[in-house]
Amino acid sequence: MRALISFTKKEFKSQIRSAKFNILIGLFIFFGILNPLFAKLIPFLFETLEDAMAQAGMNMPITPASDLDSWAQFYGNFSLYMIIFIIMQGNIFTKEYGNNTLVLVLTKGLDRWKVLCSKAFMLCALWTFYYLIYFLATYAATEYFFNTSIAQNVVVSAVYLWIGGLWICALAIFFSTLAKSIGTVIAGTLIPYILMSIFSVIPSIDKYLPTSLMSGANLIYGITSPSDYLIALGITVVTAAALITASVPMFNKKQI
């Protein structure tokens, strides 16, 4: 147990002492504030373009922005930020393969499953940390910019999105035990995510896909209720656990 704690402590130190850590904190605060800011600016943009659009024969009703628009931005931009997170942090294993730093650790008799658990925990903790920053920044800025409280199920949908992010982390961990390069890990992680996003347009399939947890817009608009996602939630948890479990023998066999 001490070895596991020590290796996890090492992972934390490695993150905290890297410039990447502060850059990502700054980025996610910025992204979080950007959501309500965009929601606030879009009606202004339409207003300035109103005359030009009317001359072109387009008539668009301009409704005042609300917290709902801010949260819609929050879910709309999620994919991009998740991709940034995976690109920046997906090298948690491959960096060590490339630098050969795991060689000394494993040749000291540290069990491979402990390395895997530490790194899996670290990636999930990082995701939780940055996501919390992103959520809180959006929440605080939405409170600041809007007086409305129209959005429904804000916390539940945010928790679902967080679980969806953890599922993507599980994919990244699984592919990190298979691949040696960050490129393969990113491709292996994002391709299933993109494919599921494409298949989610088919309503009969969508309710079974982990990606449905990430389409929280329907929840905040009140179109769906939290219980509608229970099957997807179960499948997400089971597949994430299966991916992590399958990573153990893969990592044990990996030539380092």
Partner: peptide, 30 residues
């Protein structure tokens, strides 16, 4: 490997650590 100490031709360490810190880490994981 609990019986073995290994020095590769080009040893690679966690370069964000200081030497003492690295040795303490080695002691803890063993």
């Amino acid at each position: 490997n609990h019986h073995i100490g290994y020095l590769p031709d080009v040893p690679e360490f966690y370069d964000f650590m200081k030497p003492r810190e690295y040795l303490v880490f080695c002691g803890e994981i063993t």
